[in-house]
């Protein structure tokens, strides 16, 4: 029994090594990759909210999810994929777009959020209207200004493709293609998008050769006193809903109140992470700011009383020029270059 155990541990390790070390290769034999993988939780991080319950993580499930994520056939006119609005080089946000850009060049009203560390999210969308990562993709697919496609039609398109049929078989045991399997595979891909290799992370893990400059450490202190209540370590958000006092626009997006119907939740949005800011702009739920300077100007003098700002922000956050530079230097240590270049997350052409 013991021998059997050690053989299976060895096999698992071989598989894991394979999964983490290999570059994606479209020629991979899908039949050998059905062993369950355990989700790696970065050192010092809390337990994830979702850990693939009822959705066994395997490398074939992940690869199927990746293929679906980058497949334009998920949209009505076969022009838009999830990856069109969630681009890896932009931390899986949509670069240069204040609000989302879908089929027929239709614009949405909200900014495409960055996608990383999704398994720690307790809800999805800026207003938290979606309660499960697997229930999320149906939204952009059916949304007339995003992909505008029906699930039935996607199933027809995918069934016509032998590669998909064999990938579904490898991931789920047979060739059946249904909405549940599509959503579970997408959740496997998105769940694996973990960003935990910024300079800050390496410093926290005391990795050899990693030091923070005095300026970065000063910035860290400023962050701790001014930002950490909302943008809490180590995810740099606590995923709660607050208003940071952005002046209302003509759209008057009611935010969280749209879901809860509670006036106390007016103009509150899910706090975004401060990781990967270098790549994820423009910022805020409607992409109104292009630079961190604009963001800090807002926190200093822009807080609007009419948008239900959180009490902590009364009077704004005033920083000297030096403090501002220090804070930005610290925020820059949260950029994870390895994540945005990670071969596993790239589109397989």
């Amino acid at each position: 029994m013991k021998r059997l155990f050690s053989i299976s541990v060895f096999a698992l390790m071989v598989l894991l090594t394979f999964f983490y070390a290999c570059k994606p290769d479209p020629q991979l034999d899908f039949t050998t990759k059905t062993a369950p993988i355990s989700f790696p939780i970065p050192q010092g991080w809390p337990k994830p909210f979702y850990n693939f319950e009822n959705n066994t993580l395997t490398s074939s499930g992940f690869e199927l999810g990746r293929k679906l994520f980058y497949d334009q056939r998920l949209s009505r006119d076969n022009t838009i994929s999830c990856g069109s609005c969630h681009q890896q080089f932009a931390g899986f946000a949509q670069a240069d777009h204040a609000v989302s850009h879908g089929v027929d060049d239709k614009l949405g009203v909200r900014n495409s959020p960055a996608l990383f560390n999704m398994n720690w999210h307790t809800s999805f969308f800026w207003d938290g209207g979606v309660n499960h990562i697997e229930s999320q993709p149906i939204n952009p697919i059916k949304n007339p200004v995003e992909m505008d496609e029906s699930i039935d039609n996607i199933i027809v398109k995918l069934n016509a493709d032998a590669t998909y049929r064999s990938m579904f078989k490898s991931a789920f045991g047979d060739e059946t293609i249904n909405s549940q399997r599509i959503f579970k595979a997408l959740a496997q891909f998105m769940g694996m998008l973990v960003s935990s290799n910024s300079k800050y992370d390496k410093y926290k893990r005391s990795e050899a050769g990693i030091t923070m400059t005095t300026q970065e450490l000063n910035g860290y202190d400023i962050y701790k006193s001014k930002c950490s209540n909302c943008h809490t370590e180590p995810l740099f958000t606590d995923y709660s809903f607050k208003s940071n006092g952005l002046p209302l626009t003509v759209i008057k997006d009611s935010g969280r109140a749209h879901i809860t119907l509670n006036p106390a939740d007016l103009y509150k949005f899910k706090i975004p992470s401060l990781r990967n800011l270098k790549y994820t702009g423009p910022y805020m739920h409607d992409g109104r700011f292009n630079t961190l300077d604009e963001v800090l100007n807002h926190y200093a003098t822009g807080i609007s009383a009419s948008s239900n700002p959180d009490a902590q922000l009364a009077g704004g956050i005033q920083l000297t020029t030096q403090q501002r530079a220090d804070l930005i230097a610290f925020l820059n240590t949260l950029n994870d270059e390895e994540f945005i270049k990670d071969e596993r997350f790239k589109e397989v052409k």
Partner: peptide, 24 residues
Amino acid sequence: RNVSGAQTGALDPINGMFWTWNTG
């Protein structure tokens, strides 16, 4: 079942009995 992610059979959202913007 309203908070348990993707379902199938009678609960498949394909049946049109599912709100997408406010899960349920």
